[in-house]
Computed example of a mutant assay.
Amino acid sequence: MTPSTSARSARNALLLAGTLLVAANLRVPATGLPPLLAQITAHFGLSTTAAGALTTLPLLAFALLSPFAAAIARRLGLERTLFCAMATIALGIGVRSSGWEWALFLGTWIIGMGIAVGNVLLPSLVKRDFPDNAAAVTGAYVLAMGVVAALGSAAAVPLADAHGWQAALAGFVLVPLAAMAVWATQWGSGSAPAPVDARAQPSAPIWRSALAWQITFYLGLNSTIYYVAIGWLPSILAESGVSAQQAGTLHGVLQLASAIPGLVLGPIVRRMSDQRLAAALAAAMSTIALLGFWLLPALSWLWSVLFGMGTGATFILGLTFVALRTRDVAQSTALSGMSQSVGYLLAAVAPMAMGALHDRLGGWQVPLLVCAALAAAAVAMGALAGRNRRIGA
């Protein structure tokens, strides 16, 4: 191996490691809070609506800021924007864990801002820097998201019991700090994710594309049911007689299961002529799991695993469609922004709506049935989005 080849391999290894560490931050700061929600609610005396807002705020940030992520990256460069996103997440974690009620909400919003930018730009980076391995790298970074989120959920309650909920929330800052330490090696690249020529931007055609809407709804419906489960699963399990410790563990199991498809789905997708069957089956797994939580809550561990695998596979496939169904990095960035914005707007409304439905009806049966219907709609969207086509072709 020549020195130049060795240096290039080292740069690629650092780029991949940095990509996985950035991905690890795109879930755990938001999903690590629900297991602690009971303690935080008791500490501040929050209403059910206020507690639901803590779950909804990051999703609103995702929806509102996603369309602007590409413009920020064109100004600062893709690598620098992602570094700043990690710094924003670290800042938000610090504010959120400071101990004041107003800071709890402000910090949660700041965290959502950082995650929103990372959500949009990471698929663009994968398409640009790993064009021949987009599905495999997407699977690997979803695996990183799921593993770190699972560890965070499982550790949150024991840490809070030992040191208090503030310390448990503050501990999540180690994840963005680690990402910043490795991603700092990419700072000098400063490359943009899209051409400078505004005429080359495909944003307007993206919003008029039926295929783009199919991908958007496939990701959006999946995000909707996922964040309902992330926000309310401990409460759903508590009504079935599960302890807070067990509920936190199952919350982590669900997220760990969402990482499992990342181990196998990437190589399989590369061999498929299209992804219709895989996309439909992934969403069908989530549908079955939600019906299982409703009809057979005694098997919650099974439904947690099945739901995690279904939503994880759907997420990987949806992100892979952003790369496979677009012509270039500029178009993939536009599609990523569109799908994140619309998808997370749907997801932001759902946790509070399902919580209100629960309060009105006095149980989780109907909200679970509604979510199962949304997952069934994602089956249809997956069958359409999985066709071997490109936007504008």
Rank of each mutant, 00 (worst) to 15 (best):
V157G: 13
A155G: 13
A168M: 01
D161F: 01
S153K: 10
A155R: 06
G164H: 12
A167I: 13
A150I: 02
A178W: 04
A156K: 08
A179P: 00
V175G: 02
V157L: 15
F172D: 00
A160M: 11
D161E: 15
D161T: 08
A156D: 05
L174D: 12
Q166H: 13
L151Q: 01
A155Y: 02
A170T: 09
A154W: 02
L151F: 13
L169V: 14
L177Y: 07
H163S: 11
A154K: 10
G146M: 05
L174V: 15
P176A: 07
P158C: 12
A178H: 05
V157C: 01
V147K: 00
F172R: 03
A168L: 06
A144W: 05
A155N: 01
M145L: 15
A144R: 02
A179T: 06
V157K: 13
G164V: 08
A149H: 02
A170M: 10
L151C: 14
D161V: 12
A162M: 08
A162P: 07
L143H: 12
A150T: 05
V173T: 00
V142K: 10
A155E: 00
V175D: 10
S153H: 11
G171Q: 04
A167L: 15
V175P: 00
P158E: 03
L174T: 12
V142T: 08
W165S: 00
V175A: 09
A156T: 02
A155L: 14
G171V: 05
L143S: 02
A149S: 15
G171I: 07
V175L: 09
L151P: 11
A154R: 07
V148G: 03
G164D: 07
A179C: 06
F172I: 07
A162S: 11
G146L: 01
M145W: 13
G152M: 08
D161C: 06
V147C: 02
L143C: 14
L159K: 10
L169I: 12
A160F: 07
A156C: 03
G146I: 01
H163I: 11
A179Q: 03
A162E: 05
P158I: 06
F172Y: 14
A179K: 12
V142F: 13
M145E: 06
P176V: 09
A179D: 05
S153C: 14
A144L: 04
V148M: 01
V147T: 04
A168C: 10
L169A: 00
A167S: 15
Q166E: 12
A150G: 11
M145Y: 14
W165I: 03
P158G: 14
M145T: 04
F172T: 00
A160K: 15
F172H: 08
G146Y: 11
A179R: 03
A178I: 06
L177I: 12
A160R: 09
P176R: 12
A167C: 13
H163C: 06
A149L: 04
P158F: 00
A168V: 05
A155T: 08
A170R: 05
A162K: 08
A160S: 15
V142Y: 12
A160V: 07
A168N: 08
F172C: 05
G152I: 06
Q166G: 04
P176L: 11
V173F: 12
V148P: 03
A144K: 01
V157T: 12
